[in-house]
Every structure is written in structure tokens, then in C-alpha cells.
Design a protein around this nucleic acid. Structure first.
Length: 281
DNA sequence: GTTGAGCGTT
């Protein structure tokens, strides 16, 4: 939806798209339009929204008619505080049809061979995969990704976000893609554990559902102790006098009484009875 | 009524 009431994208030819990041979820296109229109001819303002909830996804696209005006808007509005959050304005890198964009200008859609633009693009693979995978989760609730992350153990993706959110804003003056070098460098570092605890604190995995774990552990401990310690075995009374052979496992006594009884137990019993008879006589 | 890395509607 565009700001001008049209359905769908207006004319994407010869327009320069700016990506406005970090806007508030309450910020609407009406809020952004006057702000950006001060610096040039704004053709369209579009805020992608969640399909189900209809809420803003936190970023917007502002299309300018002229590149120089778009550049000016970037220079003037990048880092500007809008509705309590400082927005980031930069040239969009992708078009609506997943086409590459050259300096904010939408590249030729199908008139020219795409092979050239594709080979020129540095990282063509991230977008589609991310979008499909993240769309379900992100549309529902973005904050939940932190918790889902631990379950799914998606290290790479999470790593970028963590390192990115780690240094949020303080040293932003001209450079809007500031963390790229740091990102690469941090990604080089091997260990994930060294970076994540800084953010999380002690142990995020322990906290959820402690009761179930503790109960299970207790049961396991009980079984282990019962199996390991023969002392309890001595305490428990045995109906069979022949079972003195196997003091270790109660289960063994229950499971195989016939075999042990027939082979060793009977022999023992007979020997004992013989001894008794001899002793009595 | 919440959230916070990222690139797009009829």
C-alpha cells in the first residue's frame, strides 16, 4: 500500500528507494512522508506490515523521484530521532521483485540480462532464505526469536544479530553501515560461548522449566543410587533364600528367577539342606 | 499492549 492510496506499487521506474530502518512500530507512512518530502519529491512511502497482525515491521521504504534528493534525505535523516527512535536511512539494496538495486535506483527488471547484475552483487544468497524462514517467526513476535534461537541453535544468524545489537548506537556519525567490519571480524572468532554470555548473563538454558528437569533428575538419581548401592539391597527383604548369589540388582532377581534358581539356587538349597541333615544327625 | 534485526505492497 502506498501513501497515495493506490493499490500496489505505483511506478517503480526511475525511482530511488530508500530503506528506513529502526522506525517505531507505531510510525506510519503519514508520519514519514512530510519528513522526507522536505528534501525532495517523494513518490511513495511504504511500510511493510505483517500480513496477519497488520503491524509495522519496523522499517519503511521511501521512494524518491531523483537520486540527488534521495541522497540528501539520506544525509539529513539518517540518525534522526523519529518518534523516540533514531532511524537509519540508507539506499535500498533490493527491489520489490527481489531485483537488485543500484544505489537506490531499481535496476532493470527484465529488459536486460540479469546475469550481469547478479555477478556484481556481493552477497546474493542471504535474502530469500532469510525471508522465508524468518517470516513465520518474525511475523508472530520478533522478540521470541531469542528464545527459539536456543532451541534451534542457529548460530550464524543469531550471531550477527547479537553482535549487531551489542553496539547499538553510540558511534554513529556518518557511517550507516558501521558494524560491517566488526561483524566480519567477530564472525571470525571461533567460539560462540564467548560472545553470547555477555548478553544473556548466566545460563539461559537452565531457567526454562526447572521443575520438570529437577523431577526427572531426582528420579534418575533414585534409580542410579538404587542400582549402584548394594546397601539398600541388603535392607530390602528377600522372599527367596536362594537369591544370595546376586545381591546387585533387584531387577535381575525378578526377571530371571527360573534360570538362576534352577541352576545355582537349587544346588545351593540342596547343599544347605544336606548340611542341615548332616548337622542334625 | 509488548518487540527491535532487517529489504518491499496490489
Amino acid at each position: 500500500m502506498s501513501h497515495f492510496g493506490r493499490s500496489g506499487p505505483p511506478d517503480i521506474r526511475d525511482t530511488y528507494s530508500l530503506l528506513v530502518l529502526n522506525i517505531t512500530f507505531r510510525t506510519t507512512a503519514d508520519d514519514l512522508y512530510p519528513l522526507f518530502d522536505k528534501y525532495g519529491k517523494v513518490v511513495d512511502v511504504f511500510i511493510p506490515r505483517d500480513r496477519r497482525t497488520g503491524e509495522s515491521r519496523g522499517f519503511a521504504f521511501v521512494r524518491y523521484k531523483y537520486a540527488d534528493e534521495a541522497q540528501k534525505a539520506v544525509d539529513k535523516l539518517d540518525g534522526r530521532v523519529v518518534d523516540g527512535r533514531e532511524i537509519m536511512v540508507q539506499f535500498a539494496k533490493y527491489g520489490p521483485n527481489a531485483e537488485k538495486i543500484q544505489k537506490g535506483r531499481i535496476a532493470e527488471t527484465s529488459s536486460k540480462p540479469r546475469g550481469r547484475s547478479r555477478s556484481r552483487s556481493p552477497r546474493p544468497r542471504h535474502r530469500d532464505e532469510h525471508r522465508d524462514r524468518d517470516y513465520r517467526r518474525r511475523s508472530r513476535s520478533r522478540s521470541r526469536e531469542r528464545y527459539d534461537r536456543d532451541k534451534y541453535r542457529e548460530r550464524d544468524r543469531d550471531y550477527r544479530r547479537r553482535s549487531r545489537s551489542h553496539s547499538v548506537s553510540p558511534d554513529r556519525h556518518k557511517d550507516r553501515r558501521r558494524g560491517r567490519d566488526d561483524k566480519e571480524r567477530r564472525t571470525r572468532s571461533r567460539s560462540v560461548d564467548s560472545a553470547s554470555p555477555v548478553r544473556h548473563g548466566s545460563s539461559p538454558r537452565r531457567s526454562p522449566s526447572p521443575q520438570r528437569r529437577s523431577s526427572r533428575d531426582e528420579q534418575n538419581d533414585e534409580q542410579n543410587s538404587r542400582e549402584q548401592s548394594p546397601a539398600q539391597k541388603d535392607v530390602s527383604p528377600r522372599d527367596r533364600p536362594v537369591d544370595s548369589r546376586s545381591p546387585s540388582h533387584k531387577s535381575d532377581a525378578d526377571e530371571e528367577p527360573l534360570i538362576t534358581g534352577s541352576s545355582g539356587g537349587l544346588a545351593m538349597t540342596s547343599v544347605l539342606s544336606c548340611l542341615d541333615k548332616v548337622a542334625k544327625s
